[in-house]
Design a protein around this nucleic acid. Structure first.
Length: 273
DNA sequence: TTCCAGGCGTATC
DNA sequence: GATACGCATGGA
């Protein structure tokens, strides 16, 4: 890892990292762009302002100790993974090659399991701006993203301020199942993926898609492959016979390039039905 | 006004 | 097991 500290900030030199593509691509919902090349956000109860210094590969993590950088942010931003190598693998496939070139700075964020699970419960049949709105109200009300322990005792009615609609009762059920011990997030971490999928789907409002998102973004199970309305279009248009071999074991990471590509690129939009 | 959004529960066959 | 439909909310 190529970085230095000046006693106040961390300066990180990092390839394959673009703030817009990573922090505003629908995998995490509480990073806010505060200026050109600058985002403000948080992981658990640690806040961070991060800016790109040269429009390319130099990043400033403001007011960050070396200890926090190494023990928290390096992991969160998945700095130990070689995305150049991954993209090289993916680029054996023609469409993936285009998707990786289109947004070459996407990384998977290693998020908190509860935040990812609850965020993607909120995400269902919803659009990204409104998901951010609901999560923003939740964080404002709780003074940061609430741990599940802080939500025990909440009801569909007491969560009305979120304006989350029918999803509020699903959050309540998730909290209750974790509180009762029926779901143990730490144990899910070490489960085989099929058992983890089944267990997560015992929560009301958690089906195949939300479970895959929780596993990919909250548990870093890179083989999890969330299929939403956009990825359905990806599969129907480009992979009617399934994903190519080169994605094996990292289907979820490939998915993030494809999701971003079909959702935002004009080139992709022009080539689909 | 109608349609849609990082879907899922339920009813019905 | 497959398919159809309703669902809260708010922006386009």
């Amino acid at each position: 890892m190529d970085y230095k500290t000046d006693g106040k900030d961390i300066l990180l030199c990092q390839a394959d990292f673009d703030l817009d593509q990573t922090l505003d691509c629908g995998q995490a919902f509480r990073w806010e762009k505060t200026a050109d090349n600058t985002y403000s956000g948080a992981f658990l109860n640690k806040k961070l302002d991060i800016s790109c210094e040269n429009g390319k590969d130099v990043f400033r993590l403001h007011d960050t100790t070396e200890e926090d950088f190494l023990s928290v942010w390096a992991d969160y931003f998945d700095l130990a993974t070689d995305y150049s190598e991954l993209k090289k693998r993916f680029s054996e496939d023609e469409t993936l090659s285009k998707a990786c070139k289109y947004a070459s700075g996407i990384r998977i964020l290693r998020q908190d399991s509860w935040e990812a699970l609850s965020s993607f419960i909120i995400s269902q049949n919803n659009n990204i701006p409104r998901i951010k709105g609901i999560i923003g109200r939740l964080c404002e009300h709780c003074g940061g993203y609430p741990a599940w322990q802080e939500l025990t005792g909440e009801t569909e009615e007491s969560l009305a301020y979120l304006r989350a609609g029918f999803r509020a009762k699903y959050l309540v059920d998730a909290v209750q199942k974790i509180q009762s011990g029926a779901i143990n997030l730490e144990k899910i971490r070490s489960m085989d993926i099929e058992s983890a999928r089944k267990l997560l789907q015992t929560i009301k409002g958690v089906g195949p898609k939300v479970a895959e998102c929780a596993l990919l973004f909250g548990f870093y199970r890179t083989e999890a492959f969330p299929i939403d309305v956009w990825v359905k279009r990806v599969m129907a248009n480009w992979y009617p016979n399934g994903l190519p071999e080169c994605t094996r074991g990292c289907e979820g990471i490939a998915q993030q390039y494809l999701f971003h590509y079909i959702r935002t690129s004009e080139e992709a939009a022009a080539s689909i039905k």
